[in-house]
Design a protein around this nucleic acid. Sequence first.
DNA 1: CTTGGGCGCTACTATAATCATAGCACCAGA
DNA 2: TCTGGTGCTATGATTATAGTAGCGCCCAAG
Lengths: 95, 95
Amino acid sequence: MAIFDLLGRRWAMGIIWNLSKGPATFRALQGCCETISPSILNSRLKELREAQLIDRSLDGYHLTSMGEELFLLLKPFGAWAINWAQQIGPEIGSR
Amino acid sequence: MAIFDLLGRRWAMGIIWNLSKGPATFRALQGCCETISPSILNSRLKELREAQLIDRSLDGYHLTSMGEELFLLLKPFGAWAINWAQQIGPEIGSR
DNA sequence: CTTGGGCGCTACTATAATCATAGCACCAGA
DNA sequence: TCTGGTGCTATGATTATAGTAGCGCCCAAG
C-alpha cells in the first residue's frame, strides 16, 4: 500500500513516465508536465530519490534500475489508457 | 496522462485494489482503507463511476469489465512493491 | 406501530498538499 | 563584466484531504 501512497501523489507517475524516455533536466521535466510547480517538482524528485527510483547525474535526472523495473509495470498503462479514453470520451479529466 | 491524474488521486488505486477481491459496500471500503474519510471515499467512487471503472449493484460496488482490465495491469505492483519495500527499508511511507 | 440499529451518504471545519509567481545563486560564453 | 540559461527556494493563494458529526432510509425486533 505504501507504493500506492508514493505513486498516488500528483505527477509522480508522470515524472517516471517522462524519465523513461531518457535523462532529463529539471527544466525539461517542468516543461513536459506543463503545469507543475517547481516546488512540487522538487518535492517529488526528492521523494523519488529517497525511494531510490530515480537518481541524479551530470546530464540530469534518470531512472535507477529499480525505477526501470517499475516503469516496465507502468508501461502497459499507456496502451490501455488510449483504449479507455476512446470509450469514455475526451473530457473526463475535467477536475 | 489523464489516467495518471485520475489514479493519482489519493486512495483511487487502493479502492480498485480492494474491489478486485469482490464487491464491497460503502462501509466495507471505509473499513479496509482504514483512515479514509467518507466524503473522500464518496468523491473517489463518483469519479471512478464516471470513468466507468466501477459500478453499483445490489451487493455494493464492483469493478466493471474495464476496471477488471485495469486491475490486471495493477496486479503486478503487489509483488514488485514487496521487493521494493525490502530494499528500501520499512519507513519510507512516512509522509 | 415504534424503535433501534446498520447502511449510504452529506455537511462542516481544520489541516495539509498543491499551484503560481517571483526571484536567488551559480556557471558558461561573449 | 554582462547576458542568458539552469537548478532550485520562498511566499501567498487556492484546492484537496482529514476528521467528525449527523441525516434519511430500510428492515427487523419488540
